[in-house]
Design a protein around this nucleic acid. Structure first.
Length: 920
RNA sequence: GCUCGGGUGGUGGAAUAGGUAGACACGCAGGACUUAAAAUCCUGUGGGCAGAAAUGUCCGUACGGGUUCGAUUCCCGUCCCGAGCACCA
């Protein structure tokens, strides 16, 4: 009987859907396991074979855990708000909701064909009001709270108002923007509007002026992680810096916790490292320098991580945007400084980056006093100092900082070396090592000793203090766009006021066009009556990461209309045990989600402080393009091996008409009209194509649709082949060349259950050799799945089937456990065989221990023993033995090196170089 | 520039608490079945040398050193590729 995969797959997919096989409920009798994929943005292009890679891996793991007796939550949904749908809407006038709906339907169709065990009853879509109600709710919670640094916890804003009313803000240690110190009396004397602007500086979701990434082409601001190399990640449009009033989330308040809690997560080192870099903790000191502008004296605060180099500070530098610039510019320098400021302002972020090597700056006319040497230090203004980091001012130590060095050389400022024996004649000595010199009381200390000693001295003199700085900035939360969550905020007499919770969700209104208004207002300004009562509503919408920040919580309890997630559901499912997704979210979604979760944790809404316990980054699937070579000026194409004999042009050929790099020449002629009359110069009767690894995209004609693979080979083959392609976490090109091998394997496996008459599985009991194959397989596959080494487990199946074929084995005792084992990888064929074996239930819930665990005897034991008291040998025993039995056989006499109990050893191989293998 | 990965046959990749490198698969070559093709099955397949053959032997995990009885694996240096961050003081 033939392996008719299309019929089998169609039948089982509809049964799983009809019987809701994978629907889960909270069940306290079973341990929970939560497996999550990063949900997709449903783009118009549909899925290509690269997209499901992670979904296949997570599905294999989910099915495996289900077999192991876990109650597995494995949901799927759509990150449905976003720029592409809106851009498409602007171009075509079609409502983004419509295109999104259509794209989702297409995605769902494609996903269903691959045979995933998702619980679709829990599907979420971020653009549905029932869903974004809770995104808006979380925003209001953040608006209603402030962050207490002393307790490292978010607290209610009402509490802050009480503190202000009773003692002012002097003692409040909060994460906040600039706020003048005031007393309780002053607070009470403030107007509503003044109070509101003070409180705004403390809120976790706040409206504040900040330098933002403005993308003119998209007409909106972008978060730092949405900008790469000065261009927008979506669309690649130029981005410039602008000061604007925007909604922001005080992510920076959580910097230390986001950093610290990283240690306990099972994430890859590289991903953790990326987050650490992004958070960018640096420990140093803030120091006060006396500055004099010719008429007035001030104290200028700077930040440094190298307090030890204070004796080498020869000048000071201010960021052009620093508020100190105005105070410290002397009348003589006024013109030069203003000219420089104009120059710096006009530069876009992109130009700045392109010119990082270019040294620019201007002298302010003021001087600072080095508190340790008493030396007069000129204060400069230069764009290499950033306003947003530290205090926007630095002490420059050219001998030991390469940027200061470049500046000092350019403007001819003094350089004082501070490390014994270092050479600073051509470059600075940046390493934190060596012994200090020219440094007063620090002389003779190593740098490591000098740093804390210097800070201690600074603190003692009362001119500074220890300080930790973070690179992580608050997240810009407004977008001047249409297709996003509206803010539940209205402006009452100009004061930002939260919408009452009972008015949520605030639904996205209809507009006539999706463009900004003529006056530059966001598209929501076009909506009719976009007001709350008589007051205008906020016209920005929330960014893409808003909806994806808490979706994993919503899956736990997706239909709850009283809360984001009920306490019961949350306490049962707790956190994501396994999260699979791309590394491109390392500094975006994965930071925001963790922040969002920690905030909800502080509120007591969720019970785990981290959302994603284990995280695997699947590699990207790149495209593998094929080329044909057209002889210049003709319509003749020459095969790869002969192309050097001609003058040719390389042209992309559609990979779907190429198989094993052999071109289907007839299909090629029909592919495009211009090739209709193409002629070919063949080698050995075939046209061989060239190939290259490129991004998978339409323009390269290398996009492979999973549907095509399912039609030709079936979903089970697709699933196993994607795993077989290589290690999950490695990026690799999609290459259909090897898929026949996997398909052949499934056919072979299928045939093991049949003879000429039909389905035939023997009831005879298995012999030792057959059991050995099974045991080896069970051990290997279980180990591999636990280690996410799916490619080697596919190999293990192939080996087992080959070995059993050699043994002519078709015994139920062997085959039945194999069906269960393979069901994670190839669920359709497994279900079919399982039902042919006479089982009524789905193989997904087979009694795993009954079949598998009774076979998990160690089939091969590697046992180290000591020999001559010195050397260690590895002994390999190729038999089904318990560790105790093994020990009885191979225990060696420490002194003589002779093996005890040697009578059971059948064969001892001593190969050259004294390696010993023993076969029992 | 800094950080983190990674360099193994014609190809994708196995094997690292150090122990017979190249599992498995693709491709290729030869063979069986077939009028033929497809499908299926069998054999061979890192390189050099010797041999009619079984086989033997030397060289081989980017390159150069080191530790070790023994290194693809550990250490030092060099080169190359990929990813991330990038004036963060």
């Amino acid at each position: 009987m033939e392996y008719n995969f299309s019929e089998i797959e169609r039948e089982w997919q509809s049964r799983w859907a009809n019987e809701q096989t994978f629907k889960v409920e909270e069940d306290s009798s079973k341990p929970k396991f939560y497996v999550l994929d990063m949900f997709p943005y449903p783009s118009g292009a549909g899925l290509h074979v690269g997209h499901p890679l992670g979904y296949i891996a997570s599905d294999i793991y989910s099915r495996y855990k289900r077999l192991k007796g876990f109650n597995v939550l494995h949901p799927m949904g759509y990150d449905a708000f976003g720029l592409p749908a809106e851009q498409y809407a602007i171009q075509t006038g079609q409502h983004p909701a419509k295109t999104t709906e259509k794209n989702i339907a297409r995605y769902r169709e494609q996903l269903d064909r691959i045979g995933f065990s998702f619980d679709w009853s829990r599907e979420v879509r971020t653009c549905e009001p029932d869903y974004y109600k809770w995104t808006q709710w979380a925003f209001l919670e953040m608006f209603g709270h402030w962050y207490d640094n002393s307790e490292q916890k978010a607290k209610k804003i009402e509490l802050l108002e009480e503190i202000f009313a009773s003692e002012g803000n002097a003692k409040v240690n909060a994460a906040c923007g600039d706020a003048e110190t005031f007393s309780a009396e002053q607070w009470k004397g403030m107007s509503e509007s003044e109070k509101s602007s003070v409180l705004m500086a403390y809120r976790i979701a706040y409206l504040g002026e900040t330098s933002v990434n403005w993308c003119a082409a998209l007409g909106t601001v972008l978060a730092n992680d949405e900008v790469k190399e000065g261009l927008s990640v979506r669309g690649g449009h130029p981005v410039e810096q602008r000061k604007m009033k925007q909604w922001q989330l005080r992510v920076s308040a959580y910097a230390q916790r986001l950093l610290g809690d990283l240690d306990d997560l099972s994430w890859s080192d590289s991903l953790k490292e990326m987050q650490r870099n992004w958070i960018g903790r640096s420990q140093g000191a803030e120091m006060l320098f006396k500055v004099f502008n010719g008429s007035e004296e001030f104290e200028l605060e700077i930040f440094t991580t190298r307090a030890d180099t204070i004796f080498g500070a020869t000048f000071m530098v201010l960021a052009p945007e620093s508020e100190w610039v105005a105070k410290l510019t002397s009348p003589e320098q006024k013109e030069a400084v203003e000219e420089y400021l104009t120059y710096a302002k006009k530069k876009t972020e992109r130009e700045r980056m392109a010119e990082t090597k270019k040294v620019t700056g201007v002298f302010s006319g003021s001087y600072a006093i080095n508190p340790f040497t008493g030396e007069k230090l000129p204060v400069w203004i230069a764009e290499y100092v950033l306003a947003g980091y530290g205090t926007g001012a630095i002490m420059a130590v050219p001998a030991h900082d390469s940027r200061d060095y470049a500046f000092a050389t350019h403007f001819n400022l003094p350089i004082i070396p501070l490390i014994e024996g270092c050479d600073v004649s051509s470059e600075s000595f940046d390493a934190k090592e060596g012994v200090m010199c020219n440094s007063g009381f620090l002389n003779g200390m190593t740098v490591k000793e000098a740093i804390p000693a210097a800070i201690e001295e600074v603190e003692k003199r009362g001119i500074g203090r220890r300080k930790v700085n973070f690179r992580l900035r608050d997240a810009i939360f407004s977008r001047q766009r249409y297709w996003g969550e509206p803010f539940p905020i209205y402006y009452k007499d100009g004061i930002a006021t939260p919408l009452p919770v009972e008015n949520l969700p605030l639904e996205l209104p209809d507009v006539d066009k999706f463009l900004p208004t003529e006056s530059g207002e966001p598209p929501l300004a076009r909506a009719e009556n976009w007001n709350f009562g008589e007051w205008p509503l906020e016209k920005s919408t929330m960014p893409g990461f808003a909806g994806s920040s808490a979706y994993y919580l919503r899956y736990m309890d997706p239909h709850n209309n009283r809360g984001l997630v009920s306490k019961e559901a949350n306490e049962y499912w707790r956190d994501v045990d396994l999260y699979i997704g791309g590394t491109e979210h390392a500094t975006g979604h994965l930071i925001y989600s963790r922040f969002w979760n920690k905030f909800l944790y502080d509120m007591g809404y969720v019970c785990e402080k981290e959302p994603f316990k284990k995280l695997i980054n699947q590699g990207m699937i790149q495209g593998r393009s094929n080329f044909v070579y057209r002889v210049k000026g003709t319509n003749t194409f020459v095969s790869l091996g002969l192309k050097d004999k001609y003058d040719t042009t390389e042209i992309h050929a559609d990979v779907n008409i190429v198989s094993n790099d052999r071109l289907d020449t007839e299909a090629f002629k029909n592919w495009m009209p211009e090739y209709k009359d193409a002629e070919f110069i063949l080698e050995n009767g075939e046209y061989i194509c060239g190939w290259a690894v490129e991004k998978m995209s339409k323009s390269m004609f290398n996009v492979v649709n999973p549907d095509t693979i399912c039609d030709k080979y079936g979903a089970d083959t697709l699933r196993m082949y994607e795993m077989f392609l290589g290690p999950l976490e490695q990026s690799k090109p999609w290459d259909t060349n090897g898929i026949d091998g996997v398909h052949r394997f499934l056919k072979k496996f299928w045939r093991m259950f049949f003879n000429k008459e039909g389905f035939a599985v023997s009831a005879d009991s298995a012999n030792a050799a057959e059991l050995k194959v099974l045991h080896k397989l069970i051990k290997k596959v279980q180990e591999d799945i636990e280690n996410f080494s799916f490619n080697t487990s596919v190999s293990a199946f192939m080996i087992a089937v080959n070995e059993l074929n050699d043994l002519n084995c078709s015994k139920r005792e062997i085959l039945e456990p194999m069906v269960i084992l393979i069901s994670s990888f190839a669920p359709h064929i497994a279900e079919e065989l399982w039902s042919k074996l006479g089982h009524k239930n789905s193989v997904s819930f087979a009694s795993f221990p009954e079949y598998i665990e009774k076979h998990t005897i160690e089939s091969s034991v590697e046992y180290p023993v000591s020999f001559n008291g010195k050397m260690r040998f590895k002994i390999t025993l190729e038999a089904s033995l318990s560790p105790a039995e093994v020990e009885a056989i191979i225990r060696a006499d420490e002194n003589t090196g002779k093996f005890l109990g040697g009578s059971t050893i059948k064969k001892v191989i001593v190969v050259p170089k004294k390696i010993i293998n023993i076969v029992c």
